[in-house]
């Protein structure tokens, strides 16, 4: 897969002295869904805003399809659609006028048929003559998406798209994101909800305090960093872990009915066979066995905390 957005050594220090980004390097692949994960104030919005031309970088370069975002801004911005985090819309324009305005701003000729289809897809068609101030929060979010897509971008940035959004809209949105992605649109979304990244993204980048801690395939990431746990249910509860099992660092549940063994699934010897043998030797009778893998959330918390 070739990369469509290249970010090199990108830093941003705001005029107040706040370092929002420190030397971020990132390649975004064409056609992927990349989730940028990080707590509030991590620098996600700053990163997106620089690529879209709303904030200027302190140092570093960004190219989109090999065009510099500053020198060739007309070319790069044409390829990009942005759905901002805040519900930043005018008040007195109608839905129809505002999407036409957006399309025109990007230098595209009017195309009522395309915009009609777009509004229908976003369940906005029957609201097309409503003024923006009359719309609910969810509807405003849909309008922002319609505006971002009005000029048929190749790359779509969604900044915290599901903040304050109900279940229905969230599902609609993910359906739309997948469909766009299938049609070849590269999608970059920021979120602080880990389930979201886990659910939809191909790759996940983790940002904290302006640093891009890592970017990896979601699967690889979970494999690489994900410890597995073996849950052992016991036939009879135990008061304490019997002698001879110290080497396994077992944790017992409060009621003494369950033991948990944490291991790394990728090493040669996981220690499971030895553990089962030892359990047998000390006379513990097993009822059930179960393994579980740590979620992205646990990986995330671990990464953010270790820094």
């Amino acid at each position: 897969m070739s990369s469509i957005v290249n970010i090199k050594g990108l830093s941003k220090v705001y005029s107040g002295g706040h370092q929002a980004l420190s030397t971020v390097d990132l390649d975004i692949n064409e056609g992927e869904i990349l989730a940028l994960l990080g707590p509030n104030g991590a620098g996600k919005t700053t990163l997106i805003s620089i690529i879209c031309g709303i904030v200027s970088a302190s140092s570093g370069t960004v190219t989109v399809a090999e065009h510099d975002i500053i020198n060739d801004y007309r070319i790069t911005r044409n390829m990009i659609g942005l759905v901002p985090q805040e519900l930043t819309l005018g008040a007195f324009d109608t839905v129809w006028n505002t999407v036409n305005f957006s399309r025109g701003l990007f230098g595209k000729k009017a195309n009522p048929a395309y915009l009609e289809q777009l509004l229908k897809e976003l369940s906005l068609w029957d609201k097309k003559d409503n003024e923006l101030r009359q719309l609910s929060g969810g509807m405003k979010r849909r309008v922002l998406i319609a505006k971002a897509l009005s000029h048929e971008p190749r790359i779509l940035f969604l900044d915290e798209p599901t903040a304050g959004v109900d279940v229905e809209l969230r599902q609609d949105m993910w359906k739309m994101v997948r469909r766009l992605n299938e049609s070849g649109v590269t999608i970059i979304l920021t979120t602080h909800y880990i389930e979201e990244a886990e659910e939809i993204a191909d790759r996940v980048g983790i940002i904290n305090q302006g640093e891009l801690l890592l970017v990896d395939d979601k699967q690889c990431l979970m494999q690489k960093l994900g410890k597995k746990q073996l849950l052992i249910e016991l036939k009879q509860s135990i008061d304490k872990i019997p002698a001879g099992l110290e080497a396994f660092n077992l944790e017992s549940s409060a009621d003494g009915n369950q033991l948990t063994y944490t291991y790394d699934p990728d090493v040669e010897r996981t220690g499971i066979t030895a553990l089962l043998k030892s359990l047998n030797e000390v006379g513990i009778v097993l009822k059930d066995l179960q393994t579980s893998q740590s979620s992205l959330e646990e990986i995330f918390v671990r990464l953010v905390n270790t820094r």
Partner: peptide
């Protein structure tokens, strides 16, 4: 004031 200026800023203009 409303923040919708973001659009003009991010447009190829």
């Amino acid at each position: 004031f409303t923040g919708s200026i973001y659009e003009v800023m991010s447009a190829p203009i």
